[in-house]
Design a protein around this nucleic acid. Structure first.
Length: 398
DNA sequence: AAGCAGAGGTAAGGTCTC
DNA sequence: CCAAGAGACCTTACCTCT
């Protein structure tokens, strides 16, 4: 029996269809707006802030990127992860809405619970995307999975009012690519035999895992389509991309993927980071940086406590004004979720990083996590760390 | 005593994803 | 001049222990 996998991607904010809108800037709450139904017929509409009352991209000031954009806005070349200022040049008349994370999470949970009610073997892939294993779902094999996909799609729409695209294929890799074929509200089935006709003509960048860097490198080698990638000698790829990546590339180009749908996983790290309104200097803006730094530590600690985790590797991340990134971390002898401990350790990390350039971002991370209550004891005799102890006479920088 | 192999941990940087 | 935030995973290097 074939295994079928589906990759589902939610289209958010369909209610804004028709208007060029970008989501991304600002912090203002707009729950009511995001809740408006497709027809705007519900009574709570009276409380809605009309979309038209929000600022236009041309009037937007400040940093940040677009989280997502409606299709009318995308017509102008605006898209996810694009800088707001650049987007403003492309589509100044677009309306800017802030992200409402609470509301996004609410819909995300609704979306996922609807799916697991029908097909319990589901893997999280972020707020708006999942993999589903159709194999053991009754009716999951009918018409190559199309029947079940249709049921899931309809249920999601009934419950959330949101559309989604679904791809069904013999494995996760192909299912993910299939889901791109019929956006934003379609179903596409890809069979084993469709590899050459439907997959090989696509650009290598369509492969989940080949990003800008690998795409550029492949292009430089004259490889643009997945078919061209499939035609390469695996050893030739391994020589250029490493043992793991090279072999992987050849495998996926042939549509081969045996990765399972993973229904449960433990977090590996938790972090908080923030980009400042303006670049800050370690010395000149010491007080401001210190406050931000402490706040980040407290927020990570809060996340750990709320979710019931402790961690033992404390790290920092800096992005300089030239966009270069530096990270430092230090592993403690004992697990912690305490803000002060995190703050102290992160402060030590900070001393090991160059601070001559201005900074645009600061981040704090806690890794090597364990669930509270399942924490191994610390070593009876703490081993000597490679990291030099801080000079007690040196005042902390932040 | 010195050297080596392998496992596992730590650290830093990088890539990719949504 | 412009380029978020959070997280996973990979590579490389180095260290320690056996």
């Amino acid at each position: 029996m074939d295994a079928f996998f589906a990759s589902v991607e939610l289209l958010r904010y369909p209610q804004l269809k028709g208007l060029p809108v970008v989501i991304g800037g600002g912090r203002r709450k707009v729950d009511e707006l995001l809740l408006r139904g497709p027809d705007g017929t519900e009574e709570r509409e009276r409380r809605f802030i009309p979309v038209e009352d929000f600022p236009l991209l041309k009037d937007y000031v400040g940093r940040g990127v677009i989280t997502t954009a409606t299709y009318p806005a995308r017509q102008f070349g605006v898209g996810s992860a694009m800088g707001m200022m650049k987007a403003a040049r492309l589509c100044p008349q677009a309306i800017v809405l802030p992200v409402d994370f609470d509301e996004v999470r609410r819909f995300s949970r609704l979306f996922k619970s609807t799916i697991t009610d029908i097909a319990p073997v589901m893997q999280d892939r972020g707020v708006d995307e999942v993999y589903i294993d159709f194999t053991d779902v009754p009716g999951g094999q009918r018409e190559g999975g199309r029947v079940l996909a249709r049921l899931i799609q309809k249920s999601i729409f009934d419950v959330t009012g949101l559309t989604c695209s679904i791809g069904v294929a013999p494995n996760r890799l192909l299912a993910k690519m299939a889901s791109e074929f019929n956006k934003p509200n379609g179903i596409s089935i890809v069979y084993e035999d469709d590899l050459q006709t439907k997959i090989w003509p696509l650009n290598v960048r369509k492969i989940n895992g080949i990003g800008p860097k690998a795409g550029e490198k492949l292009a430089g080698l004259g490889i643009h389509t997945i078919g061209e990638l499939a035609a390469q000698d695996p050893q030739w790829l391994i020589a250029r991309f490493g043992k793991s990546s090279g072999a992987w590339m050849h495998r996926v180009a042939w549509g081969r993927d045996d990765s399972p749908v993973v229904t449960e996983s433990e977090p590996v790290s938790m972090s908080r980071e923030t980009t400042f309104d303006r670049d800050l200097h370690a010395v000149r803006d010491r007080a401001e940086l210190s406050a931000i730094f402490t706040d980040l530590c407290e927020r990570v600690a809060g996340d750990l406590q709320r979710k019931g985790y402790v961690g033992k590797t404390i790290g920092i991340k800096l992005r300089y004004d030239d966009f270069k990134i530096a990270t430092r971390d230090q592993t403690l002898d004992r697990y912690t979720q305490d803000a002060a401990t995190i703050r102290r350790t992160a402060g030590l990390c900070l001393k090991r990083v160059p601070l001559d350039r201005k900074l645009r971002l600061l981040g704090v991370r806690v890794g090597t996590l364990e669930r509270v209550g399942e924490v191994p004891d610390g070593p009876p005799e703490p081993r000597a760390s490679r990291v030099r102890e801080a000079d007690p006479h040196t005042r902390p920088l932040f």
